Simulated assay, not measured.
Amino acid sequence: MLTRRHGAILKLLEARGALTVGALAQELGVSTETVRREIRALVEAGAAVRVHGAVGLAGQIGEAPFERRMRENAAAKGAIARALAERIGDGDSLMLDTGTTTSFLARALLDRRRLTVVTNSLDIARTLATVNGNRIFMAGGALRSDSGAALGATALDFIQGFTVQHAIISAGAVDETGVMDFDLQEAEFARAVLACGERRVVVTDASKFGRRGFVRVTGFEGLHDLISDQPPPPGIAASIAAAGVSITLAAAADEGR
């Protein structure tokens, strides 16, 4: 029989992936010995497994980082994707960088026809290829093992030959100065995507607001639209408004459905 504490441990592991005994004890406000006892019961029941000094859900161990990120804030990302998909019609052209929110957008576009899509994301290309008469152009180069994305000089050279209606990037971090990322190559690719679009859009769930990344992608003046699930904090909202960028709140848009 699983106890309430067992349920709390499983929820933490589902939301955050594998955790150490110490981290679980701190989250639950109990001793490490208590956590070890509860983990022993979960492991014996087949609900959890021990791995590298930590414990994780049995079904998630070995899960790719990208798949794990797809589960994080999934409801918010899905709402953002649906809100943006409403602005994209049959026959439109768009360029998407790699990211979980842009992958959600690809799934929200499965009922569109004759799209022209340029991307460096294997997940996006695989989602939209071979359906509804779409044309998919996949940037080449070495694929990242963690995200299935092609990055580097070859990918950058490839996309610079396109002009699309919608240039859409995801954000790793957003503060009062603009959009940032934590990876140099991903930031370079996102910046190149924006340069190819007639309308430049960033999609981000609210967890990215207030973060500071290592690499600047663009100031708000380089964007037309920002789509999120919650309003930005006042300082960021003021910077966005000063740049003349339109903010769409996906949750509010969905409530009227």
Rank of each mutant, 00 (worst) to 15 (best):
L2A: 11
T3W: 00
R4F: 02
A8R: 11
L10T: 01
K11I: 09
K11N: 15
E14M: 04
G17Y: 00
L19R: 11
V21I: 13
A23T: 10
A25S: 10
E27H: 11
E27L: 06
V30P: 04
T32W: 00
E33N: 05
R36W: 03
R40C: 02
V43E: 14
V43D: 09
A47Q: 15
A47D: 08
V49M: 07
H52A: 15
A54C: 12
G56L: 02
L57D: 00
G59P: 12
E63W: 04
R68V: 01
R68T: 06
R68K: 06
E72V: 15
E72H: 14
N73A: 14
N73H: 08
A75G: 06
A76H: 05
G78K: 12
A81F: 02
A81V: 04
G91L: 05
M95K: 07
L96F: 06
L96W: 01
D97Y: 14
T100W: 12
T101P: 15
F104D: 09
F104R: 15
L105F: 11
D123M: 03
I124Q: 08
L128V: 14
V131S: 07
G133S: 12
I136A: 03
R144D: 12
S147V: 12
L151Q: 02
L151I: 07
G152P: 08
F158Q: 14
F158Y: 15
I159Y: 02
G161L: 11
I169A: 01
S170E: 09
S170I: 10
A171D: 03
A171Y: 07
G172Y: 01
G172K: 06
T177C: 10
G178E: 00
V179C: 05
D183C: 06
D183R: 08
E188H: 14
A190C: 11
R191G: 04
A192K: 04
V193G: 04
V193Y: 05
L194D: 00
C196D: 01
E198M: 03
R199G: 01
V203D: 00
V203Q: 01
D205F: 07
G210P: 04
R211Q: 11
R212W: 10
G213Y: 05
G213I: 06
R216D: 04
G219Q: 01
F220E: 10
L223N: 01
H224Q: 03
H224M: 00
H224N: 10
D225Q: 04
L226P: 04
I227E: 05
P231S: 10
P233W: 01
P234K: 02
S239P: 00
A241F: 05
I247A: 12
I247K: 01
T248V: 14
A250Q: 03
A252Y: 09
A253M: 13
D254N: 08
G256M: 11
